[in-house]
Design a protein around this nucleic acid. Structure first.
Length: 283
DNA sequence: AGTGGCTCCTGAGCGC
DNA sequence: TGCGCTCAGGAGCCAC
């Protein structure tokens, strides 16, 4: 569920909230998702201070001042909560069931905690030398970041020149081509671009090509502004929902009328994932 | 090269 | 009421 806008929301909030803090202790009740091991993790982070945060596609990187870094993937339902004396008992933390699946906790010496809630336990944390972060397999293989200036129509055309038979809907999900898009924003971006997800790359016209990259950037920027979307499980570090779901045109709207033309939105599977599209607005 | 299926995991929603 | 089924989904992996 967390895609680029949600992950960037978390990275920005962590930058504001935990940089400079010193780690006192760590705890986990789901150690199999801490790599390379919980004991290594403990040794490498205890006593270190947070230097800063970064994002690679959907990966979160938390750099420490001891030459180690913590790389995190939220996968589907993972999210970070930052709790302190002042906010620990807010309703978002105590009453929202989505925030109640805490499996990992980092405690700072000032009493603040960085907690990782993850209902489905797919998310992972991986400690390594800071200099090794960019060599991690799932990071080194990433395509250009969807919001980076170097993600351009030319880049997309070049990288897709060897993938003419693939469906554009599958392309948008491929992190090794474009980093950051997930199942929600691929449907939304293709709606904005007016292109059916099932279209093969080789059939895209000269009028359609220039619409793809701007549509992707537009939908991601809009979502980022609203702290992402939380139809399901995403929460920001305050435990609060994003607001983008109110602006969805097609995702999750199967059998409902298109907000632009009234045609019934259809749903289909590409791979194992649902894509939603308007058969009238998208060609 | 391009698909399809399985896996990790849990909760929601459904049919009976 | 409660059981069992299916689905949701990021991404790696394997098979055809």
């Amino acid at each position: 569920m967390p895609e680029l806008p949600e992950v960037q929301t978390v990275v920005s909030q962590l930058e504001q909230k935990i940089v400079g803090k010193k780690i006192k202790d760590v705890w986990s009740d789901w150690k199999k998702k801490i790599l390379p091991s919980f004991s290594t993790f403990t040794k490498q982070v205890k006593g270190a201070c947070i230097l800063g945060t970064r994002r690679y596609g959907k990966h979160i990187v938390i750099d420490l001042d001891n030459e180690y870094s913590l790389v995190v993937h939220l996968k589907m339902t993972g999210h970070f909560l930052v709790k302190d004396e002042a906010n620990r008992t807010t309703k978002a933390f105590t009453e929202d069931p989505v925030n109640g699946y805490i499996h990992h906790i980092v405690t700072f010496i000032d009493g603040t905690t960085l907690e990782f809630s993850d209902m489905r336990k797919f998310g992972w944390l991986h400690t390594m030398k800071t200099e090794e972060v960019e060599t991690l397999a799932s990071i080194v293989s990433l395509g250009r970041d969807a919001l980076s200036p170097n993600f351009t129509e030319k880049y997309l055309r070049d990288v897709l020149s060897g993938k003419k038979k693939q469906m554009i809907g599958a392309i948008l999900l491929d992190q090794n081509i474009i980093a950051g898009i997930g199942n929600i924003y691929r449907s939304e971006a293709l709606f904005l671009a007016g292109i059916l997800p099932t279209r093969r790359v080789e059939t895209l016209t000269k009028n359609e090509w220039p619409r793809i990259v701007p549509a992707i950037k537009k939908v991601l920027r809009q979502a980022l502004k609203l702290h992402g979307m939380s139809d399901g499980d995403f929460r920001d570090t305050d435990g609060l929902e994003g607001r983008f779901q109110q602006t969805l045109y097609v995702y999750g709207r199967g059998d409902k009328p298109c907000k632009k033309c009234g045609t019934i939105i259809e749903r289909k599977k590409i791979g194992q994932r649902s894509v939603f599209y308007c058969p009238h607005c998208q060609k």
